[in-house]
Every structure is written in structure tokens, then in C-alpha cells.
Amino acid sequence: MLYDKIQLIIKRLMLAVPTLFGVLVISFCLTRALPGDPAVYFAGAMADEASIQHVREKLGLDRSLPYQFLAYCNNLLNGELGQSLTTGQSVTYEIKARLPASLELTLLGLFMGLLIAIPLGILAALKPNTWIDHLCRVLVTAGASTPIFFSGLFLMFVFYYLLGWSPSPIGRLDFIYLEPPHVTGFYTIDALIIGDYEVFKAAFAQLLLPASTLALCALAPIARMTRSSMITALESEYVKAAKANGISTNMRVYVYALQNASLPLLTVIGLVFGFLLGGNVLVEKVYSWPGIGSFAIDALVASDYAAIQGFVLIMAVLFVTLNLIIDILYTLFDPRMGRNE
């Protein structure tokens, strides 16, 4: 059984290699197909023909496309993602600094979403058409229909501007604190590692509002999926059989039904996580969060090739890993998985 699972994991990892290479080629070609000439853009408004050519040569854009691609692959093998022109830093530095920021925010947002959505979905499934089911419905509809930039601005308006409960939305940490030394890149965890509770509190306070915004957004699909898959599970034969055998309600609901209901739920959580990580640009902008999403958007606007390619590549790696983790979790939750093969 364990051997089966390891084999499955290795197979999945092997499959990821051609996927990543495909992503590499496509992102390379697509960035080149973007309108605009980065050399012209970065030479500045006052530059003349000679200085544009100078920048072009410096960026290696005067070479043929296949040459540029090989050079890019060669750099990648050496662990270099190139220089971002918009931010003036190496793409590796940017990703190292920004990915943890986005991950910290997204994970907390997702966690908060799960914390509310799953119990809510279960309760709604246990008592369909009661007030809790209606509450679930209202929350799901509101969460799905409120655009993220609106809920972000609204929360900021109420909790920062009007009430003053939240710290000023100027990024990961107020300027009176110094960020903790880089270990994981998650400020909250890094602060705990060195035992600086004040910085932990400050970093956590900064996280709360943007994470709540994301949680609102994540809530809808998760609660809906929990409710429907729980209803299906509760009505299925094996739960009825368990009831007939006198197995306790808690056992039936939280072990038998929930375990089976968690399979579609897991898929949805994976999807929502990916969506939140790549799509929280608006939250990042509103809360001045130095995350990966706003980096990618700025790079796209400026046709910043290295930055876009680096972003796409990292996201591809993340998604492949995420899918892998979900597949592994599947095999844990569902005994049928991995055995038939």
C-alpha cells in the first residue's frame, strides 16, 4: 500500500516535467507576442535611437528568438530567473520576497474561510431549510456576488477609516517595526521564531483585514460545496445503514459522511487556493501588500519579460505541487485511490 502510494507520487512528479517545460515555452512565446518594445519603454521618454539600441543590446533583445530562449533556459538551469526591469531587482529576489507575502495572506484567508464555511455548510446540510441554512445561503450569495475590490475597500472604510480599529493599511508591517529576520518569509512565523511577540501582533494585525476580504471571497464556493456534498453523503445508503446499526450521530456525521464529502471539497479548496493566490491583486493593491499578484500585473503592463516568465513559472510549479498534494490527500481520504492501479 505504501509502495503503491510512493509509486503514484513519483509518477505524478515525472508527469510534471513536460508540463513545466510546456509552460516555459508558452510563457516565453506569449511574452514576446505582447505589444510594446521593452527596450523603448526602459530607455525612457527622452532617449534617442542610439540609447534605445544600447538598452536593447544590454537586454539581449537584439538576438534571435531561439538564441534568447536557449540563453533563458541556460540561466534557469543556473537558478537565475533574470532581472526585472520594472522593479530593478532580480526576479529571484522579488519572488523570494513576495511569494511568502502572498502565501501568508492567502493561507490565512483560506484558513479563515474554511473555519467559517465548513461548519456552516455542515450545519446547513444537517438542518436544511432552517434559519442556519438560510444564513448559509445569504452568506454564499453575498460572498459570490460582492466583487473583491469592493469588499476590500468596504472593510477598510469601516474598520480603518471609520472605526480606527485596524492598523493603517500600508503593507505587511507598520513602519515603526523592523521586519523579523528571514527564515520562512512569513512575518508572523518569523517573529514567533525569534520570540518577538510585539512584531507578531503587529504583523498579524496587518494581515487581518486583507485576509478577511479573501475569506469572504473563499467562503462562498466552500460553504456551498460542503453543504451539497454533505447532503448527498447523509442521504446515501451507507449512512442509513450505519444509522440502522445504531452508530451514534456524531460518528455518522463527522466520520462516515464527512470523510466522503471531503473529496469534492478538497478539489474545490485546491481551486479556491489557486484562485486566491493568483487573483488577489486587487486586495494586494488596496492594502499595499507587496505580493506576487501586483508584481505580475505591473510587469505585464510594462512588458517586463523576465518578470512575467518568472511569475508564470513559479505559479506553474506551485500549481503542480498543489495538485500533487491534493492527489496525495485523496489517496488518504479515499481508500479506493491508488489501489486499483
Binding site: M156, S168, P169, I170, G171, F175, S288, S294
Partner: peptide
């Protein structure tokens, strides 16, 4: 002197109105 990047103009406005900037 601290120059802080705040990309959203609504946030910048809120910060200066609240007196934090």
C-alpha cells in the same frame, strides 16, 4: 523621512485623512 509605497489611491487618501501619513 519614510516614503512608503501605497499603490491604491483610495488607501492613500484614507491614510492622509486619518493622519497616519
Amino acid at each position: 523621512v519614510i516614503v512608503r509605497d501605497v499603490p491604491s489611491s483610495s488607501t492613500r487618501r484614507a491614510l492622509v485623512e486619518r493622519g497616519d501619513a
